[in-house]
Design a binder for these strands. Structure first.
Length: 196
DNA sequence: TGGTCGATCAGCT
DNA sequence: GCTGATCGACCAA
């Protein structure tokens, strides 16, 4: 299984979004491997994107990591209680990122189930299994990602991506929850794996 | 099956 | 003091 290296992330958030679909998002926690297949993402195109935290070049403690090398984690808190995980794209001083919106659990099912529902995977209802990581906040909870993971290097061995050769068909739509962003709200920058 | 609403915090004004 | 790249609980029908 090929672990993705820095080069993979060094492209615009839109291109990276499409390449991320079907890839395997891995974390090693307490020596246990937890992973899920990325099934839904959104591109945030930085300076010119009114929906992006880095719109117009806004640079704060929070957005700082997006101005660095690509292939790092950008984690922020939304609505006071949920974390959202992004992967920094492009290049130094080009603050673009890809929001990981959903994943399909592959390994470490019990670890995810315990973190989300405080019970083992086999005790989950059908709905709970579906809901394990099918949203940005849920995925972070299942994968154990919070603000302390902001700035993690995906080219190290704690959190990283793998390519198992999967090349899914891609569907496109408007991004979610950014109605305030005027014309940018209509851009088709949400990508997800096509269901048959 | 679908609408509304509260939780709760970082960043901005 | 307000608002948001969300979620899940609760209620109505």
């Amino acid at each position: 299984m090929a672990k993705l290296t820095r080069d993979f992330y060094k492209k615009s958030a839109i291109l990276l979004s499409k390449d991320l679909l079907g890839k395997i998002f891995v974390r090693i926690i307490d020596g246990k491997k937890i992973s899920c297949r990325i099934s839904e993402v959104e591109a945030y195109m930085g300076i010119l994107d009114k929906a992006a935290h880095s719109y117009s070049g806004k640079r704060t403690n929070r957005t700082e990591v997006m101005y660095g090398e690509p292939g790092f984690l950008y984690v922020f808190i939304i609505y006071g209680m949920y974390n959202c995980a992004n992967i920094v794209a492009a290049d130094v001083d080009i603050p673009e990122a890809v929001l990981i919106r959903a994943g399909v659990p592959l390994e470490g099912l019990d670890e995810m189930a315990l973190r989300r529902y405080n019970k083992t995977y086999s005790l989950l209802s059908k709905k709970e299994k579906l809901n394990l990581a099918n949203g940005p906040g849920k995925l972070c909870k299942a994968m154990g990602i919070d603000r302390t993971d902001n700035g993690e290097d995906l080219c190290e061995n704690i959190t990283y991506l793998e390519d198992d050769g999967s090349r899914p068909e891609i569907s496109v739509s408007k991004r979610i929850g950014i109605d305030y962003a005027e014309e940018a709200a209509d851009f088709l920058w949400r990508f997800y794996i096509k269901e048959e």
